[in-house]
Amino acid sequence: MINVEKFIRPATVAAAVSHLKTPDSLILAGGTGVTLSRDPNVRTVIDLSDLQELKSIDLTDNRIRLGAMVTMTQLRHAPGLPAALVAAARAIGSTPLRNVITVGGELARGVYWNDLPVALLAMDAVVEIASEAGVEKLPIAAFLAEHPKKTLAGGKLITAVEIERRFTQVGYVKFARTEVDYAICNLACGLRVEDGVIREARVAMGAIVPLARRIPEAEQSLVGAAPGEEAFVRAAKALVEAVEPRPDFRVSREYQRQLLESLTRRVLESASQSEQ
């Protein structure tokens, strides 16, 4: 923030997007990731805090819409949200951080410890993005196919996230040294179970990989199986085989692998005991 000349608080999304055109501008949401930035190139800060239209949680029929400026505390306490989403929001930082951290910031930051994107990947969320060109909707897996900085380059602003309640069972687990610490490993899953058979599965993880992503090998091993220990053990093995853990000074690679195996089973078990 050292060379910032203008501090703008736009009243509409359109105004915010028009200011984003200049490459030296930076969006400020909860600020937990950007306040301490010393990037000398930033000249304009676009503070989204006046955009009331981005602050609501809307539940309709089978859909959930989370505005980009919805905080983790809002998610923590809102009625009617999937337990896994609430658990992911609760797992983030501490109360005063959750009071400010936003859905948009969680998606755009792109650090290994981000919890919310992992849960959103397991629910096939769709990211709504506004730019001068209009509004586009990107499935979250596509949104995170590259680092979000790249995906959002060229003046793009996240306006909302939408979730269709397709999965009958969802789960989220975070493993960290303390409740408020960054994840050593986090995992989420979404299962669509019909007539006692898993028809569709999503398994996503963060922390042990540099950026949250789905693990198709684990997902495929679940499809067609009956939810239960046998299928979950198989999926855990498939996941461990598919993932190359990133180096983590806190824990060894062997530890990461063991953790992944037991947490994959745990998240699947917790999902199979949940009702969305």
């Binding site: 923030m1 501090f7 306040t35 503070d47 930082g93 005063p96 009071n99 400010v100």
Partner: peptide, 27 residues
């Protein structure tokens, strides 16, 4: 700490408990 970890800087901003080391004065 000056970076959001310790919580010694907490204030109520419009009644909401936040860490003032992670809020800009301009904000």
């Amino acid at each position: 700490c000056g970076e959001g970890d310790c919580g010694a800087c907490g204030v109520l901003l419009d009644g909401v408990y936040v860490k003032s080391c992670l809020i800009l004065a301009a904000q």
